[in-house]
Write a protein that binds this DNA or RNA. Structure first.
Length: 833
RNA sequence: GCCGGGUUGGCGGAACGGCAUACGCAGUGGCCUCAAAAGCCACCGUCCGAAAGGAAUUGUGGGUUCGAAUCCCACACCCGGCACCA
């Protein structure tokens, strides 16, 4: 660090300072010995569960961690002050690719990297003064933990919620593994950025789609206490739509071709059909004559990446499948095409195309010269402007046959009329569809939870018996872990070859491992009973603590971890293991710590080392800076912050405790009333500010209290006044939520035994919240023209009389007629002339 | 394209529909000191004015209201989610 390396300055003379490093050393030791933050499961107190997304152990903690943990600690410590029994655990999400890649590089076992980093991070967290209950620490890569991840997988399988299927999956060619939909961002691997391709593979899935509606409904309940952006992202991701399934009879085929549409009202305008080119259905439908053309087209579709597919304004392509279908309302024979603009895994993988009312269908019809029938009347001039698909509202047209007519109806009425008719004919039905896909959980990598299933040539997929869990990973290291498209586990002959638990014959273990998001979908439950040996968690303990009252973490998990964890909780609820169906009652997303307007990154070289900041300014000053910077959700540009200023304030606050001249336990009610008013006002404000997560304002109020106390000591009642002690003790408590080291030091200087975390929170005296006199504002036409010092209890009539008698008010009215006077005693009078 | 969030001094940001700019950073002047650092005190958004004081001002334009940064409508810009999802 350069300039302001003032942390270790020993104070001299009047401007005394405390020595930051030695204060940190001193209190770390005290906290390690006394463990002030252990949660008592048996406590009769009301319980609160403060949870922060547990870290992945890659290297040491960085500025981002520093911010989340600082925010988290304010809440946890505040709840403890307010008399709650607080569960405040920490652990590590310790399976995953970085450890595996490091192991390949360094020719070692992934555990070496993983557990070394965990120790580094744990030491940093302790240094950072966080109020965690270390007795509950867990690592998802411990067999004691993943045993229960496997147990849960088997329970899900028992309920039909874990299954295997063959289908086109997202494949990351760099990491050599499949990815869940949620891990593909703009057609690229979320982790490494490589362009994702499609492969047909047999993989394990969780049937999260069974819970689509519940996941959506739950958002209604969470909306008031979860961030809008997360609620919004999950809603979009689940993507509920209402529409209909419509059956089209295909010439020469028993099975109808069923499509999903959100616009059944436009059925009369369906002039052709399109099947997803890569859907099995297309291969079944295609005529012999068209098969070569179809297969050539399919080949071209397969080689195109998702990136190409995402390109907008891409010309429509496709191939005639050589079969026809019958439009159920018009009886018209219409052609069936295959194209890549229809998705295989959404709806039924086939659509009815209504070019008059859908732009994509319009574009396709234009390329292939297909007819257009409008079924909604566009407004004046639509056709004259060149015409294209009309997606707006309006009366239905061209929509009648002998039995039914929706002509003239608006869209909603036409929809329900068509659905009713289809249902009466048995050729369609109203339905709800979701964008959400099932969760692909197999990964072809080593450092994860082995899937506890054995594949037997005679018995098929056989569960590993529960009493044989955990299925531990075989010892592999270095080059054994090199990605080769199949799991490294498959090559571990001794491990993979087993006897079938069912028939005893030779069989093979499933060699894939689970997505690490499975591990993190239930860890918050394990924290409630970390050593529990009879299940993943003790239901009684989990029910006592869950749901977590606050969950703090990055918004990047809006549709990943947060959706998966909700799904797991719902399943466990349905299994009767949990009372709550939602894991996190409230949520807080912190912003990023950036530098000079940009995200910190190695390539930009603008990274700020947390360690260096802590050495230069001390833990307290760094934490204070992060909290005081602004609202927790906002990004913090470290370049614009002043940790040196924070340290200056902390020294100033600490100095107060030296100047308190009254004894501990003195009757503070005899103290100076003016200072007491400030103290009680600030404490009362701090309560609502912390509860509404406006921590930066809480700090500002604390600064005001420090300023007022300084003034009282230097130029007011003096350090001997009991009100000064009361104020300084309040400062120590308020500060302890942000800057625990200096707070402990102050608390001790004030003559109290540690820890300040166990101090009794000040009881706010309502009488002291009432000001002695208030400033009443007099407005003329809403503009401030005068200020009056009045008694807070003044009557409306008195205040009005006082205001109208005021000289400057009389001048401002200037003889005009007073039409109306609004009085909001004791603070405001507005005169309307 | 659809959906969500935002826009307040030089900067980070405060503000139950009622004194806009709290608190802090940066800046200016002073005290202390041989001097500096630290500390302390004062000033510190814009325009007009020597000052007293006045005027306009919370992205832009409307509206509701005695009164709008705050509520409503439209627009601009910024950030985020979804996206050939039928």
């Amino acid at each position: 660090m350069s300039e302001q390396g003032t942390a270790g300055t020993e104070g001299t003379a009047d401007a005394a300072t405390y020595d930051v490093p030695s204060v940190e050393r001193k209190w770390q030791q005290v906290w390690a010995e006394t463990e002030p933050f252990r949660a008592d499961d048996e406590s009769p107190k009301e319980k609160r569960y403060a949870l922060t997304m547990f870290p992945y152990p890659s290297g040491d903690l960085h500025m981002g961690h520093a911010e989340v943990f600082a925010l988290h600690d304010v809440i946890a410590r505040y709840w403890r002050f307010r008399g709650f029994e607080v569960l405040n655990p920490m652990g590590w999400d310790s399976f995953g690719l970085p450890a595996e890649n490091a192991a390949i590089r360094n020719d070692e076992h992934p555990a070496t990297y993983t557990y070394a980093n965990i120790e580094t991070q744990a030491a940093s967290m302790k240094n950072y003064g966080l109020a965690f209950d270390w007795s509950r620490r867990l690592h998802t890569s411990d067999p004691d933990y993943y045993r229960w991840t496997q147990w849960l997988f088997l329970k899900f399988r028992e309920r039909g919620l874990a299954y295997r299927k063959n289908s086109p999956v997202n494949w990351c060619p760099n990491d050599q593994t499949v990815l869940a939909n949620e891990q593909v961002v703009d057609g690229a691997c979320e982790r490494c950025g490589a362009v994702v391709t499609k492969r047909d593979l047999t993989q394990w899935y969780f049937k999260i789609t069974d819970y689509a509606q519940e996941l959506l409904d739950g958002l209604e309940v969470l909306a008031p206490t979860w961030p809008d952006r997360v609620i919004n992202a999950q809603r979009n991701w689940i993507g509920r739509s209402e529409g209909a399934h419509v059956d089209f009879v295909v010439e020469g085929r028993e099975e109808p071709l069923t499509v999903y549409t959100t616009r059944p009202d436009t059925l009369f305008g369906a002039t052709f059909m399109v099947v997803a080119a890569d859907a099995a259905l297309a291969g079944e439908l295609v005529s012999d004559a068209q098969r070569p053309a179809y297969e050539a087209y399919l080949e071209s579709v397969r080689t195109a990446s998702d990136i190409d597919r995402l390109a907008t304004d891409r010309p429509k392509t496709g191939v005639d499948l050589g079969v026809t279908a019958t439009n159920p309302v018009t009886g018209t024979t219409i052609p069936v095409y295959a194209s890549d603009y229809v998705l295989a895994d959404y709806g039924t993988g086939a659509i009815m195309a209504v070019p008059g009312q859908d732009q994509r269908d319009w574009d396709f019809a234009a390329v292939f010269g297909l007819p257009v029938i409008r079924t909604v009347q566009p407004g004046e001039g639509w056709e004259a402007d060149g015409g294209e698909a009309f997606t707006g509202g309006g009366p239905a047209i061209n929509s009648a046959n002998e039995e039914i007519s929706v002509d003239g109806m608006e869209i909603p009425e036409a929809k329900s009329t068509v659905i009713t008719w289809l249902e009466s004919k048995g050729t369609g039905r109203g339905t709800v569809n979701f964008r959400l896909r099932d969760w692909l959980l197999s990964r072809q990598r080593y450092w994860g939870v082995p899937i506890p299933v054995i594949h037997c040539p005679t018995c098929g997929e056989v569960d590993v018996p529960l009493d044989q869990l955990p299925v531990e990973l075989p010892e592999l290291r270095g080059a054994d872990l090199k990605p080769k498209g199949t799991s490294p586990l498959a090559a571990a002959e001794d491990w993979v070859n087993v006897d079938c638990p069912s028939c005893g014959g030779p069989a093979k273990r499933d060699s894939d491992t689970m997505d690490t998001f499975v591990d993190s979908s239930w860890y918050f439950l394990r924290f409630t009973s970390p050593g529990y040996a009879d299940g993943p968690f003790d239901p009684a303990r989990a029910n006592a603590w869950m749901p977590a009252d606050i969950y703090i973490g990055g918004v990047e998990h809006a549709v990943l971890h947060l959706l998966y964890a909700r799904f797991f909780t719902m399943v466990l609820h349905d299994m009767g293991l949990l009372e709550t169906a939602e894991p996190f009652a409230a949520q807080l997303n912190q912003g990023f710590v950036i530098n000079q307007g940009k995200k910190m990154s190695k390539s930009l070289g603008n990274g700020v080392s947390l360690g260096e900041q802590l050495t230069a300014f001390g833990v307290d000053a760094v934490r204070l800076t992060l909290i005081f910077a602004g609202p927790p959700e906002d990004d913090i540009d470290w370049a614009e912050m002043s940790p040196a200023g924070s340290l200056k304030f902390l020294q100033r606050a600490w100095r107060l405790s030296n100047d308190v001249a009254s004894a501990a336990g003195v009757d503070v009610t005899t103290g100076d009333v003016a200072l007491r008013r400030v103290t009680h006002r600030v404490v009362a404000d701090a309560e609502t500010l912390v509860e509404s997560h406006r921590f930066n304002v809480m700090v500002a109020r604390t600064m005001e209290l420090v300023n007022a106390t300084r003034k009282a000591i230097d130029s007011g009642v003096g350090g001997g006044d009991p009100a000064v002690r009361e104020a300084t003790e309040a400062v120590a408590m308020l500060l302890s939520m942000v800057a625990p080291y200096v707070a402990e030091e102050m608390w001790e200087t004030l003559g109290h035994a540690p820890s300040v975390a166990h101090a009794a929170w000040p009881v706010v005296d309502p009488a002291l919240l009432v000001e002695e006199s208030v400033t009443a504002v007099v407005q003329i036409q809403g503009k401030v023209r005068a200020r009056l010092e009045v008694d807070p209890g003044i009557s409306a009539a008195d205040l009005e009389a006082l205001a109208l008698a005021d000289a400057s008010v009389v001048t401002a009215i200037a003889g005009r007629e007073v039409r109306k006077v609004i009085v909001r005693e004791p603070k405001l009078v507005n005169v309307v002339v």
